[in-house]
Design a binder for these strands. Sequence first.
DNA 1: ATAGTAATGTACCGATGGGTATACAACTGG
DNA 2: CCAGTTGTATACCCATCGGTACATTACTAT
Lengths: 215, 215
Amino acid sequence: MPGGRPRAFDIDAALDLALEVFWRNGYDGTSVAELTAAMGITKPSLYAAFGNKEELFTAVLARYVEGPGAYAAAALDAPTAREVIERLVLGAVDLTAECPGCLTVRAVHAAGPEAAPVREAAVARRKAGETALRRRLERASDLPDGTDAAVLAALVHTVTDGIAVQAAAGRGRKELLRIAEQALTYFASSSSATLNTTDLAVSTGKAESPKNPLS
Amino acid sequence: MPGGRPRAFDIDAALDLALEVFWRNGYDGTSVAELTAAMGITKPSLYAAFGNKEELFTAVLARYVEGPGAYAAAALDAPTAREVIERLVLGAVDLTAECPGCLTVRAVHAAGPEAAPVREAAVARRKAGETALRRRLERASDLPDGTDAAVLAALVHTVTDGIAVQAAAGRGRKELLRIAEQALTYFASSSSATLNTTDLAVSTGKAESPKNPLS
DNA sequence: ATAGTAATGTACCGATGGGTATACAACTGG
DNA sequence: CCAGTTGTATACCCATCGGTACATTACTAT
């Protein structure tokens, strides 16, 4: 029954353009004027279609995980835990090398009380991804017995976050790749060398751990 | 010759107060009004003493590395590479757990052309720290032969960056510590298990891409 | 045709951003 | 006491911020 003037732009295409801007400049580093310029629409159109800047960002975030971030979900389908981790880490390099920085890493750093919903949305997305990884690792058969899947998932996440920061700090793709490979070498060496009884290395079985020498 | 009215506040104390604000909100998330409020001075005093917001930030950055960030330089004095790395990683936990996020990580994400000098200053500081670590690792005797000190230094830096992001994303100190310990376990296991190049860990050269499906 | 609806373009809103002009207050050397 | 100098306080500058009012345009249903 409803008529009305038809929208003169494609919602998803506009979201992709907005994504690019948010990706490069972060949430609070992006102005609505920049968004409308990039999207090729006017402010009233933006507000009519997406509500406001914050809602637009959460829509962009959803498109991000289904688009550029889809590799992460796909990585979980790899046959072994090691390959899952490898795909995640190398995928992080590809993702952040092409356009420095990671949308959720930037979003987590959004400042100010008015950006709180944005931070929370980003944290929720990150948590969901990490939980999925943890579940996948729990089902894995190629990890040493006693491996704490939650901690390992968090560590992998930490490494990919670090890669994103390194990319944002100007590190080029080649360097990022070497860092990623080095990290994977460490992961793999532990994974295959469970019996590699080194003096202090193998606390793998226990959550008990090295002591903290710092305050 | 020169007289003049004496400054009514202490420069270093003011810098510390500014540091706290920048730390919590990042460079472009912090307004001059917030700064003056926190520092207990007026805008003209701030501009007279520090030049402008950007110069104030670089001064704060210098104080950061000599203050809260001093643990990083001190860590290099540890007797072994392993202990150096341990101190750096655990130090990152302490640093970022108390006040979520890392000043330089945030600064690297500062947006806009006018923040370019800030980004560059942060990148320079980070690079200097990493170079110092690399030099220290080159002198170490407890690393496997053939270890690439530059890559290892970059990886450690990547992990500490990741920890900062995790802290900013709301991870608590206890969790951060477990992640850090897990990372150290991997480092240690390889450190004794020389060049444990496992079969597959390296799909290396391939730029096989998750690829960005969006325009 | 005409009524109803929804998107568009222009032009604007108050609030806040970084930064400053100007007048005054507090110190120094003569 | 006075000139020179330098920090402080009030009050203001313009640009930009996120968000909107309003009149207009383009469509559907009757």
